[in-house]
């Protein structure tokens, strides 16, 4: 890990050392645009058969920062890792004739299958809720728009809440309000936890810079999560060549059954 990180850190420090960044006179900063740079500890995560989750470290730097705002801690960083998006159906069970069965359901449009967020503070204290809702940062501000007919607003909220609660308790959604640390006045590090059941596909690392409670800049970088080895081969076969895969399953069964009857024959 350290071997991977050091070149990133070095590059960032060099970037910061550029004259333009260092020589902004105090007080004139408002005329200069801030910059945001990020780098991740790895660009690919491999899911092996003994995968138990992983940590992703995101390094970043705020360039051309306003010294005054920095000093009073008015810069905030939010880093998110968003998984591939898909429809998600939430179902509710009710007791019918003594038996618990799914009665109502609601399908949300294109929501990330996994989502981790790390920030310098509670993200609700960084900005006002309506503003966060508009940009959709944070688990409680994520857009969950139902498709089809929705009976009433109250049940919509219940389904949304259940969705967030289940995702959080299942570990696919994670919230770390102190996951971003400033290493120096403008260099920061964010740690994001990837759960063991993280879906494979292209994930997006996004970093947001807030200044005085307003979103200033946004950077993104892809992170590929891939299943490796036998697991990947099996999943690929099952989905891309299902007939051959099915035949192979039957073949294994025939060989096992036949082999056993030959092996244990008693006549």
């Amino acid at each position: 890990m350290a071997r991977l990180l050091s070149p990133i850190l070095l590059a960032l420090i060099l970037a910061l050392g550029s004259p333009a960044a260092a020589q902004v006179p105090f007080g004139e900063a408002s005329t200069v645009k801030e910059g945001l740079e990020i780098g991740t500890s790895t660009s690919e995560i491999a899911i092996t058969s003994d995968f138990r989750g992983a940590d992703l470290t995101v390094f970043g730097a705020v360039t051309n920062a306003d010294e005054l705002f920095l000093a009073i801690g008015q810069y905030d960083i939010v880093v998110t890792l968003e998984g591939p998006k898909d429809y998600a159906t939430v179902r509710r069970k009710e007791r019918v004739l003594g038996i618990w069965m799914n009665t109502e359901s609601m399908t949300f449009e294109q929501v990330p299958e996994s989502y981790s967020i790390a920030s310098t503070r509670q993200i609700d204290s960084i900005d006002s809720a309506p503003a966060l809702n508009n940009i959709g940062i944070g688990i409680s501000h994520m857009t969950l728009s139902p498709i089809g007919y929705v009976g009433n607003a109250a049940s919509l909220n219940e389904f949304r809440e259940a969705y967030r609660r289940l995702k959080l308790s299942g570990g696919l959604y994670q919230n770390d309000t102190s996951g971003v640390r400033f290493l120096s006045s403008n260099l920061f590090r964010a740690s994001l936890r990837l759960p063991a059941n993280i879906p494979d596909g292209v994930h997006m690392v996004r970093a947001y810079l807030f200044k005085g409670g307003e979103l200033l800049l946004e950077r993104e970088q892809p992170l590929r999560v891939v299943k490796t080895g036998l697991e990947q081969a099996i999943t690929d076969a099952a989905h891309n060549r299902p007939i051959v895969y099915g035949m192979f399953c039957v073949l294994i069964a025939v060989v096992t059954g036949w082999g056993a009857s030959l092996l244990f024959r008693r006549d």
């Binding site: 998600a88 939430v90 179902r91 509710r92 618990w100 498709i147």
Partner: peptide, 19 residues
């Protein structure tokens, strides 16, 4: 298992399968 109240009455399925 059918008659005992489940731990959570809500469940999530990936995909828009209800349509």
């Amino acid at each position: 298992a059918l008659v005992v109240k489940p731990q959570d009455v809500y469940s999530i399925a990936v995909g828009g399968l209800s349509y």
